[in-house]
Amino acid sequence: MFDVDPAIRDSLRPHGLAVTRETDEAGADRFAVVGRTWAFKDRLKQLQARFDGSRKAWLLASEDALRSFAEGIGATGPGLAEAPAGDPDKGAGWGSKHYHGHRDGLRTRFAEARDEGALADYELLELLLFFSVYRRDTKPIAKALIARFGSLGGVLAAAPERYGEVFGLDPQAVDEQRRAQHDEDLRFTQILLKAVHHLMRRTLKEELKDRPLIGSWSALIDYLSVTMSHEGTEHFRLLFLDRKNILLRDEVQSRGTVDHTPLYPREVLKRCLDLDAAAIIMVHNHPSGDPTPSKADVEMNKEVVALLGAAGIEVHDHVIVGKGKHLSFRTQRLI
């Protein structure tokens, strides 16, 4: 086995690339580059590399070519780098001048906007997708995501694996390089959008820390709406409070179906005693979007209030979260 210059090997590794040295059929040295090569295929082609589809490897004919390749990508850090502009004569395809001009224009509009309504919802999502989608027009992807999941909030709250439903690639109709690029785009998009969703939830939850929850009702509803309004199944959440109504713990107690989730009053009491909670706020969502309580909701609420009341623990409220609206049992005089 022939060795490869360690400096070259180390410079390729951060980009998800590996290289081996071997001999070709004529006994001459050559170098096989494997890994996330799709991002660098144009550079490899410039160096007269040949793609071996059976091994998913690019074959370089000399160490000088390999060194030139490594030096050429060495200045680019690993991660989500946008593709260079392509050939302007190739139209609005992958990496073309067309979509680069569009991206620059959208960035400029966002940077110069004087109010948050300057861009449509799909344009904000499109702008975000610039950081995860390589060499592809993000406008149709952004529009398709919002159409499929109903809103920006629905997109961010969707299960990551569902994003693949709108990425529009037939795995049987494209070459290996394009398919690998599509898979990377999808993976980065899944990570990016879920990270944004988690950031939103954590930012809103910061407004609830170390302050009486009863006096922070607007902030609480904002947090619950982002956290629960787009869930596809019912979740039951309990907010445990101390004697000053400061949040002790925020816990999902159960997950159910599209129209029901079980909650066991004795388990609620046990958890309150474990945490030494003085009060709770009960919360659950209605995936249908309508927060009107069912008869079962009202009966279960009465059971919990009665059991906790006997133990000196107050139920401040029971909130049902719908899509864009909510209902308070206390406001409706159901507590």
Rank of each mutant, 00 (worst) to 15 (best):
A277V: 03
D115K: 05
E112N: 09
D121C: 04
G35C: 11
F130L: 01
D250V: 00
R30G: 05
K244Q: 11
G16F: 08
H284A: 13
T76F: 07
L124D: 00
L60K: 02
D297S: 09
L204K: 06
A219E: 12
D276Q: 14
V19P: 12
V155G: 03
I280K: 05
Q190S: 00
L129V: 01
G77Q: 09
E22K: 13
A118L: 02
D3M: 10
L238F: 11
G150A: 11
Y134K: 03
D290M: 14
G35S: 09
L186V: 06
R107L: 11
T189F: 00
L327Y: 08
Y134H: 14
L238N: 10
T76Q: 09
A311M: 05
W94I: 06
R202F: 07
E267G: 15
A39C: 07
A65D: 15
R266P: 02
R330N: 10
L60Y: 04
A83K: 15
A159T: 13
A18N: 07
R36Q: 13
E314M: 01
P78D: 14
V319N: 02
P6S: 00
P212Q: 06
V304G: 01
R179Y: 13
Q332A: 14
I246G: 03
G232H: 10
K244L: 07
T203M: 03
